[in-house]
Computed example of a mutant assay.
Amino acid sequence: MRAKHRRAVGVSSAAVLLAGTATVLAEVRAAPAVPAERPPAYEASCSTTVEGSRVTAYCHNPYPRTDRVRLHVECEKWWDVDTDSAPVDVGPTAYAELTGRCWKDVRTAWLTHQPERDSAGT
């Protein structure tokens, strides 16, 4: 009797486990896929270097749309003037170099990107 009871418990346990797994798999398949966070398809890839009080940014645009890039430099000393470069349009497959500086030390430097405006209107 005990052998039959063990088999019955084992079979029923396996059935419950398989039913639960099927339910979980159905829920996973029904869940919408979450897209990976990607940068916009117009931003040029840029890198910055800081040498003393000078900052240089190197940008290359691998995309078919023009990217308008600006370099922003924040200086360490309160009396030192922070700078923002003039916007530079980096066209498709183009390369640009932007520079900025402080009188003394650089605290941070970053770039901003803006897509090219459509020429058909506003």
Rank of each mutant, 00 (worst) to 15 (best):
S45G: 11
E74K: 15
D84Q: 05
E51T: 04
W103S: 07
T21K: 07
R117I: 01
A57S: 07
L17N: 06
A57F: 10
E37D: 14
R54P: 01
E43P: 00
H60Q: 13
P92L: 01
N61F: 07
H5K: 12
L18V: 06
N61C: 04
V11I: 13
M1Y: 02
V69S: 13
D105A: 08
T83V: 14
R70M: 10
R54D: 08
P87Y: 05
P35R: 11
K77S: 15
R54S: 12
A22M: 13
G121F: 03
A19I: 05
C59S: 06
A57D: 07
S12F: 10
R2I: 00
S119N: 08
V16R: 08
H72P: 06
T21C: 14
A36H: 09
E43R: 15
K104N: 11
E97D: 01
G52K: 08
V11G: 00
W110S: 14
T48M: 07
Y63G: 08
Y42Q: 09
V88H: 04
A44Q: 04
V50I: 11
V50M: 04
T108Q: 03
K4Y: 07
C102W: 02
G10M: 12
V69R: 09
R29L: 00
A109F: 02
G91P: 04
K104W: 04
W79T: 13
E76Y: 15
E97N: 02
V9E: 14
E116Y: 03
S12D: 08
D80I: 01
C102E: 02
S47D: 14
R107C: 00
P87M: 07
E76F: 14
V50C: 02
V69E: 10
P115W: 08
S47E: 12
V69L: 12
S45P: 00
C75W: 06
A8Q: 13
D118C: 03
R54E: 10
V90R: 09
T23M: 13
D82C: 09
E116T: 05
P40W: 11
P32G: 01
V88M: 05
R6Y: 07
R117P: 01
T83Q: 13
R38F: 01
